[in-house]
């Protein structure tokens, strides 16, 4: 079965459209629009039927919720049948479903190439970036849900505010007092040090790690893997200098910082950019201990 817009809203907007026309021209246009809409609905139904009957289609069960729209206020799952094409990703399938069957199907997406971090979602029970998850790698029916442990705004869209706040809580910007003398002179950084921070700089703020973390789920103030990784990126960057490193270690050692991590590796497992998040957290713990001993 494919899903259409909830019946109730369709009926109500139809009556509105019928009561409005005044002039003959408007009536004619309204009639034309009505016929076009009928044709479109018919075509959608045909496509849906064809798709359901066809072996080469994929079945998706997609979470739906809208706080404002009648019929969607109670969360539900809608089923879509999408014709499979080689190389199709979960994002491709969602876009097809939206553009063909139901334009109200809502999800964030932009770059389609795993760098903007917009489309992290819960696919068959795991945090994934929809754009780099191949349909052919998944068991059917494919269950697509919003990221767990975040407030759902609508359908697959979650509120990211809390994630952004945690990211910004670790002073996520480069700080140093010592710059080279010449105006056109860069700071030197050896290749090893650049390599050391490389993986940590690949974070795309998708929120998959935070969503997968049990600790973050239970402790709303926990900085979470992404923010700690951001702190790691600066703490390990030798260009900032020793003094800043002290300050950075103090930030991540706070009550809801690195010591909350219980090394479950769930963040590392779901990270679409393969960042060794747990290792980074562990390394910061070690640095913090070393640092504290130094001042004992």
């Amino acid at each position: 079965m494919s899903t259409q817009i909830p019946k109730q809203t369709e009926e109500s907007s139809e009556t509105e459209a019928e009561t409005q026309p005044a002039s003959k021209g408007e009536e004619r246009r309204a009639e034309k629009r009505r016929r076009a809409a009928e044709r479109r609905e018919q075509r959608q139904e045909e496509e849906a039927e064809k798709a359901a009957a066809d072996d080469s289609t994929v079945e998706l069960k997609v979470f739906r919720y809208d706080p404002q729209v009648e019929g969607k206020q109670e969360p539900r799952f809608d089923t879509f049948h999408v014709p499979f094409t080689k190389g199709m990703t979960v994002l491709d399938a969602l876009m097809y479903a939206r553009d063909t069957y139901d334009s109200s199907l809502t999800f964030r997406h932009s770059c389609r190439q795993a760098v903007c971090g917009s489309d992290a979602m819960f696919v068959n029970g795991g945090q994934k970036l929809a754009c780099k998850t191949q349909i052919s790698d998944l068991e059917e029916p494919i269950r697509v849900e919003p990221l767990p442990h975040a407030e759902v705004t609508k359908d697959l869209v979650v509120d990211m505010e809390h994630f952004y706040e945690q990211m910004e809580a670790v002073e996520p910007y480069f700080q140093t007092d010592e710059y080279p003398d010449g105006e056109l002179e860069e700071q030197r950084q050896d290749r090893e040090n650049r390599e050391k921070i490389k993986m940590s700089t690949r974070c795309i703020w998708c929120g998959a790690c935070m969503s997968s973390c049990n600790i973050a789920a239970g402790d709303n103030e926990y900085l979470g893997p992404a923010a700690i990784n951001k702190a790691y990126r600066f703490a390990m960057d030798e260009r900032e200098g020793e003094e800043m490193k002290q300050k950075r270690l103090e930030i991540i050692e706070q009550e809801h910082g690195v010591w909350r991590c219980q090394t479950q590796f769930s963040c590392t497992e779901v990270c679409p950019k393969d960042i060794p998040l747990t290792e980074h957290i562990q390394e910061l713990k070690r640095e913090a201990v070393k640092n504290n001993l130094k001042f004992w």
Binding site: I5, D66, V69, S104, T106, T153, K154, D155, V157
Partner: peptide
């Protein structure tokens, strides 16, 4: 066709 004011 989506009548919603939320994330439309």
């Amino acid at each position: 066709s989506d009548p919603s004011r939320t994330f439309n």
